[in-house]
Amino acid sequence: MLDPSDAARVDQVTEAIARLLKGQPSPLQVDADAPQDEIRQLAVYMNQLFIEFDHLNAAITALSQGSLTFDSPGRLPAANAVKNLQAALRHLVWQTRQVAEGDFTQRVSFLGDFATSFNSMVEQLTANREALLEQNRLLEVTAITDALTGLTNRRGARERMILELHRAVRAGFAPCVMMMDIDHFKRVNDTWGHEAGDVVLKALAGVLKKNTRFEDVCARWGGEEFLIMAPEKGLEFGLALAERLRARVEENVVEYNSQRIPVTISIGITTYWDAEDLDATVRRADGHLYRAKNAGRNRVCGDLG
C-alpha cells in the first residue's frame, strides 16, 4: 500500500495521463523537495512526454494546415516521421514548381501511390506538350505552304524574302527576283477543265522545284503566278536560270487523261534595289512579266531587256 502522500502523487500522474489522452496535456508540478524516488521520476518522464506530445501536436497541426516551414524539436519516432514527410513535401513543392516552369524530367521517388500519380501526370503533361508542339509545327508549315503544289505560299515567301533581303543589304548584294505566269492558263481550264488546270500547276511546281536550289525561294504567288528568288545570286545567274526554267517547262509536256497539254511560261526578272520596299521589287518583276506576255509569251524579260 502507498502512503497517502504517494497515493496523491500517483493520482496526479494518473489524471495527467487522462488529460493527455483527451488532448489536453498539462505539465505536472514536480516538487523540488519531493523524495527522489520512482514516483518523482515518473512525473519527470510524464512532463517530458507532455513536451513531446506538444511538439508532435504542433507539427501535425502545422502540416495539416499546409505549412511546411515549421521547425519541430520533437524526438519521438512519430515526430521523426512527420519531419520526414515535411522534408519530402518541401522537395515535392520544388519539383512541382520545376514542372510548372517546364522541367518535365522531374519524377517523385517517394510517397508511394502519390509518386505513381505524380509521375503519370508529368508523363501525360510531357506527351500532351509534345503533341501540341508537333501540332504547332504542322500548323506553322501549313500556314506557309500552298496546299495544291506543296510550294511555299505567298505568306511564306514574303517572310523568307524579307530575311534574305536584309541579309543581302548587309552583304551589299542585289539578289534576283523573278515572277512567272503560265501562258494561256485560262485556255487550259476552259479546254480540259479545272482538274487539268490543277495538274498543270502541280507539274509546273515540280519543274521549278527540280531546277532550283534548296536555298532558293520557290513559291506559288497566287493563281497561276509563281515567284523565285535566288539569294546571293545576281541578274546574270537569274537570267540563265529563268531561261533554263522556261525551256524545261516547254519541254515538259503535261499529260492529263491520256491527253498532252503543252505548257509554256513567261518570266519577268529583276534585282532587289537597296532599301526599296519588297513590293516594289515584285511590282518591277511583274512589269517585266507583262512585257514578256505582250512580246508574244514563252520568253524572259528583265531589267536589261
Binding site: R75, A81, K83, N84, A87
Partner: peptide, 13 residues
C-alpha cells in the same frame, strides 16, 4: 548545415 540527423532531424538540410 541547418538541420542534421544528430540534431534530431531525419534529413540533413
Amino acid at each position: 548545415e541547418v538541420d542534421c540527423w544528430c540534431t534530431g532531424d531525419r534529413v540533413c538540410r
